[in-house]
Design a protein around this nucleic acid. Structure first.
Lengths: 237, 237
DNA sequence: ATTTAAACATGATAAATATCATGTTTCTCC
DNA sequence: GGAGAAACATGATATTTATCATGTTTAAAT
């Protein structure tokens, strides 16, 4: 496994911090944080942390896209969550004082900071606002997980596939053309989120393509009929 | 809908508090809490709170068993979580300042306290330990939800059914006989957790019965071959 | 640039599971 | 304690989806 390359930067000027849980920190706390974090670059496909590893700190994504995955009993991968710039990653195991139950892998080249465990815990204790930000993040992730449970439990593969495309769009947005989903996943990765086989995933994307809901161009997926895609997903609200 | 019957009790002697997030409070905070909470009894099948309602406080289960459910687009129920004595319920929407995304319904007669929203928030802010307890509870719920996602995504109905029985046992334990699962659910409710049809649920329970993994007696389910049930569930660790 | 592997694609088939139909049993409420 | 509803049960059938097989395209590494 390739090693990430480390370097140091200040947090005060970090343009990502504004959109992260650390936005609530005072400037003196921020200056202190610089001494308790380090920043690394990762190539596409590298592990940020791996299942069963011990957390040593909190990861905060500066740039790049990350998938959080766990492994089923026959080795099949399950994508649980996706992260982007400004998101904290690996907080659950850290807070629960457990080994990682999932892995984090970069979907493209990324820059990620790791904040020292002791400093993070100390700051959380002294700054209820920070802890509250973490609580709110966890709350959103829990809501998302429960939506996913409902979907996996009650919807068919076609509906889930449409929903997955909408989820990807909601998470990463569109590219400049305002229709191409801002992340490139393999068909297998999409299947690993949707909970279906790679073949079924490929077939359904082709169908959506034929039905003029989307346009496929390699790994690039463009949504050209959003209302119809929403209808296909059978969204409640 | 029947109204729950209210009454007042002290928190200082509450034998459930020890196993709840409020265990970390100081005795003066406890005495203050008595004035900011009220306790109610609920009959089996009553709603504690309902989807789309606005949270007014935090529920803490004193006695009884609760299901947390959400409704799919065709009205089909999904059981997301189960709660028992000592558990807090309805905390996610409260903390996120949102309407309830799920409902809580009693599975048997229950006694449940509601702690006033303002008092709860104030105490969380002044007592990081309390907030940390809530964080840990949410962390466990998130882990459970992610396990559920993996299961729904990668396991077949038979495996999920075995897993569900083990989950019920883990949550509510056995009765005095050390084999009968300590909760009574309808086949439909079990199906609503497992993510299958009621008929498939009934069929699989009959099969497990025939295969001498369990013994059925009305709604009572006794596990008589735990190792084989674990094997049927294909548990990873 | 060429080789090699991974990703994508599609048809045929098998397996899993839902749905429909119908009957029985067990609760629950006057 | 009896009427009615809900829950349980089981067979037959239809549908969905996975799996297997095989070929093509694309991307990565030497």
């Amino acid at each position: 496994m390739k090693k990430p390359i480390q370097f140091e930067t200040g947090c005060a000027h970090c343009n990502v911090r504004i959109h992260s849980v650390f936005n609530v920190l005072e400037s003196d706390q921020m200056n202190e944080m610089v001494m308790h974090k380090s920043c690394s670059t990762y190539k596409k496909g590298q592990y940020v942390f791996a299942e069963n590893g011990l957390p040593t700190g909190l990861f905060c994504v500066n740039s790049g896209k990350i998938k959080i995955t766990t492994t089923g009993f026959d080795g099949k991968e399950q994508i649980l969550r996706l992260a982007k710039s400004g998101d904290i990653v690996g907080y659950r195991a850290l807070i629960s004082n457990e080994r990682y139950a999932s892995s984090a892998v970069t979907l493209e080249d990324a820059t990620i900071c790791i904040i020292d465990k002791a400093f993070f815990f100390k700051t959380m204790e002294s700054t209820p606002k920070l802890m509250f930000e973490v609580v709110k993040k966890m709350s959103r992730d829990l809501k998302e997980a429960e939506d996913h449970i409902l979907s996996l439990s009650q919807k068919n593969v076609r509906e889930r596939m449409a929903e997955a495309l909408l989820f990807l769009k909601a998470t990463y947005g569109f590219e400049e053309d305002q229709k191409t989903i801002g992340v490139s996943l393999t068909r297998e990765e999409i299947a690993d989120y949707v909970g279906t086989s790679t073949e079924s995933c490929i077939r359904l994307l082709s169908e959506f393509n034929q039905d003029k809901l989307i346009v496929l161009n390699g790994k690039k997926i463009s949504i050209i009929n959003l209302p119809m895609l929403i209808q296909t997903a059978n969204i409640v609200d």
